[in-house]
Each structure stands twice: as C-alpha cells, then as structure tokens.
Design a binder for these strands. Structure first.
Lengths: 252, 252
DNA sequence: AGTGTTTATCGTCAGGCAGACGACTATGAT
DNA sequence: ATCATAGTCGTCTGCCTGACGATAAACACT
C-alpha cells in the first residue's frame, strides 16, 4: 500500500563521510571531535544533514568540501584539481542509532591523496587524521598513549565497512591512484597498496603487474628522486578503471 | 554543525526491492503494476515505507515477505526454508525522484530460486516476473507484443544497478546458489550463470571449476535426471561464501 | 535390440599469469 | 670509494584457464 499518508513517519536524513588517505605508510581516516552531546568529546566521522533541495551525492560533496576543501570528482562530475574520489558506501538506519531521533545516514566513501592538516570550522584541535586501526580498536591506547574511546554512534561500523570497501576495490579497479598525487612513481603506488592492505608486496612483481596492465599508468616522461635511491619514472593515472586481471591481495 | 533543529527537513524513507530469479533460462525481476498516480498503470519495483521502529533490513525483509512469501536470510539472520538472499543495494535520493514529496529510497537486492506465481495483495494481475531486458528496454515491445513502458520513478536505474551487482557478485562469491533450490546439479548451477551473464559456458570447464573450489559445493549423495540425459549428482551450497580464485565472466 | 539425442563427467594440452628471486642500475650519504 | 636505498629487467616454476576429445548413463524413438 504505497503512499498512504498515514503510513509514513518523517525521518532525518544525513550523510556521513569515510575520508581515507595514506599518511606515513598507514591508512588514515578523518575524524572530528564532537563538541556537543550525545557522545560529546568523542571522535566521530564528519557528516551533516541533507538539505531539502540536494541530492545525496551533492550533500556528500558539500560536506567533503566543508571539512577538507577537497572537490570531489564523482563519476558524473568533471575531474578537478585537488579532487578526491567519492562514492556512496551504504545506508545505516537502525532505529536506535541516534538516541535523540530517527536518523537515516547515507554513508559515503572518499579517497584522497595525502593532504595538509585538516580543518574543521577553523578549529584545528577538533579534526585529525588518525590511523584506522587506532580508530577501530576498542578500549586500547592510541600511539600517543591517549585512551582510545570508540567512535560515536555506529561510526566504527561505518568506518569498518568503508575500509573494507577500499581494500577490496583497489584489487579490481585503478582506485589506488586516488590516494596518489597527480604524478607518482610505481613505488609510491605500491606503498599505497601496502598501507591499505597492511602487507608487504614484492617490488619487482608489482612493477611488472602495474606497468603491464594496459591503461592503468601513463608515463609522463619525468623522473623523481623524492623517495631517495635511483630516479624513478613518473606516471599519471590512465583511463582504465577496471583492472583485468585484478591485483590479487595476498591471502593470510 | 550537526543537529541544529532548524537545519534539517523531514524526509520520507522507503525501501525498494530488486527481486531476481532465473526462469526459463532468463534473468527475471519482480514487477508490480501501480494502481494509483503517479505512474498509474506502469510497472514498478515492489517497495514501501520504512516504519518508525524498523531497521532498514527489517523493512526490506518485511516487504519481501509481503510480496513473495519468501523469508530472507540476511547474513545476521538464521537460514530458513524457502529463504532468499537479501542485501542492501544502494540509496536513491534525487530531490525530484518522486513528484509528490521528498523520498529517499534504500534499495535492496533479493535473489530467489524459481518460485510459483507471484502474489500482490491477492491480485495476481498486478504482479509478474518479467525478464530484466524487457523491463529495461525503453520504448520497445515485450515478448507478448505489449508496449514496454519504462518503469516508474527511477526504478529502471535501480533495477539496472541491481542486475549489475548480481552479475558481478556471482563472479567472486557463491551467491549463484541463491538462485537454486536447496539441492541442485552442476548443470543447473551453470544455467544460472548463463542466464545471469547472458553467455554460454563450457560445461566441462565449469564442472571442473565449481567442483574443484573447496567449500563451494557439498555432494548430498543423491542423483537426479530431471534435466534429462545422464543422471547428475546433487549438491548443496557449501560453507564458502567467497570464491578464490573467482569465476571469470567471459569478456566481450 | 539398436540408434540417436541429451546431459554429465573425466582427461589432455597449451598459453597466461603470479610468486619467488637473481641481477643490474642510478642516485645520495658517509 | 664504499654503502645504502630504491628502481627496473629477467628467469623459472607452478597453477589456472580456455579449448577441446572422449566416455558414460539416461531417455525416445524405430
């Protein structure tokens, strides 16, 4: 019986963002410290309400811009400088997920290159990049000895789902380049895979694989020694989005 | 600025269902004929409002039961007889997707074995299994010569996304068994892959692949000749959910 | 009873790709 | 000059897949 006016209750609809980047060989996510109850003082994912005239992806892109200054290039939007990959992740609507009211949150996943310090309404103290293991471990201690409180709401679940999506998606797509600056070396791309998967990869087999996949990497002609050692070729991301055959994640 | 009460507008939240099955060697979806405006008389996906005290997956399972009589076994629910696979697909929230009001729809994907005739509130004329190509082609003619009007709302997009999810997911998971009855033969499973992908597969290589993947199929000891020809072994779905290495979909 | 048809199942073989790893190159640091 | 670091090119072996031949066990005819 669709659309019987007495049959539906109003919901609040929000977007939450899992913004991932690779910093210092670790997969990190953007976390915001909550300034008000509930969960005051706890870390949470950035997010906010969807506006009445906004599509979900627009709302996610707007939040991403507000929190990080990144322009998202979704599949339907033109690519931009300093852009990030943005895609819908999943929707969370447990009736008790927000103690105040019924909130349905459409989570999005954003992948960005390493950035300068985050900003959150000018308050640098209330936003940070944190390794995802630190954010996900329950009741342990972070690297700085600070007690690691669980994330607010069901954000640990959302973050976990986002990380798993990223881990599996770089297997069969060229998405790992979204973690890299516009020009990058094969070694830098390999370190992205190593950080996201948390494993070590053989540099020689990795080089053979990525340079041998048509459309994955396009040489720019330049070289760099910013990682030390012998100069490495610079590449841009090629047009291919799907990797066939995929990059296999080592098991166990 | 989360949760400023003046900052959010109420939305209606619905679940829509992409219910897929394999009938007569074709991938079919459940379609409901709309009895009221807008899009009166057009075909649409089954769905309905999420109730105030219901989780999204509960709402989807309830709608599935109402429309088909199937009990969903989601990953967190116990398996049941006559059960179907159910998972969240994606969420659609374009401000204009429903002309009457702002509706955010959380689409779910259900996979079911071939069933008896569908029911829709007792009105058999308003629900049917239709090949997905018939539902997705715009302005053509269905097999029975009937003008094929596009699906209501953005349901063609939702159905298309659901079909693509199913097509890709049976590559790397054991999900194709969700289209089969509790006991099935290798040939029946192969016909599922052929119908979902729309290609012909080599029976010998397929047999080697599925019987050689540990945990995919468990022999029950029985045999059947319901497909004609030499008796075939019967199998149940094994415990494995991920196929490694995957079943590769032939390209082109 | 024999013949053809259908479906299932086992085997063989060649090519492609991945993991393991050796060898060499080009830079900066000591 | 030597070392450490990182990048790049090869080789070899084993596994998996695609392409197919061959056999097996049922049913439907004649």
């Amino acid at each position: 019986m669709p659309y019987d006016p007495s049959a539906f209750a109003p919901f609040a609809v929000t977007v939450d963002l899992v913004v991932l980047t690779v910093r210092r060989h670790a997969l990190c996510a953007l976390a915001i410290r909550r300034g008000e109850p509930p969960f005051q003082g706890r870390w949470a994912l950035p997010g906010g309400f969807v506006r009445p005239d906004e599509d979900l992806s627009q709302a996610a892109a707007r939040e991403l811009m507000e929190e990080t200054g990144l322009c998202a290039h979704a599949p339907d939007a033109p690519a931009q400088a300093n852009g990030a990959h943005l895609e819908q992740l999943a929707t969370y609507g447990d009736p008790k997920r927000d103690p105040r009211m019924r909130v349905v949150s459409v989570a999005h996943l954003a992948l960005a290159p390493d950035l300068p310090a985050p900003r959150a309404g000018g308050d640098a103290n209330s936003a940070r990049w944190a390794p995802v293991e630190d954010l996900l471990q329950q009741g342990g201690y972070g690297r700085d000895g600070e007690q690691a409180a669980p994330l607010a709401f069901d954000h640990a679940r959302i973050l976990s789902d986002g990380v798993e999506r990223a881990r599996s998606k770089i297997e069969y797509s060229s998405l790992a380049t979204a973690f890299c600056p516009p020009e990058f070396t094969v070694g830098e791309l390999r370190r992205v895979y190593e950080a996201v998967w948390g494993v070590a990869l053989d540099p020689r087999n990795f080089h053979r694989k990525v340079t041998g996949t048509p459309g994955f990497l396009v040489p720019t002609g330049g070289t760099t020694t910013r990682q030390g050692g012998r100069p490495a070729q610079l590449f841009r991301a090629g047009g291919a989005t799907l990797l066939n055959p995929p990059m296999l994640r080592p098991e166990v």
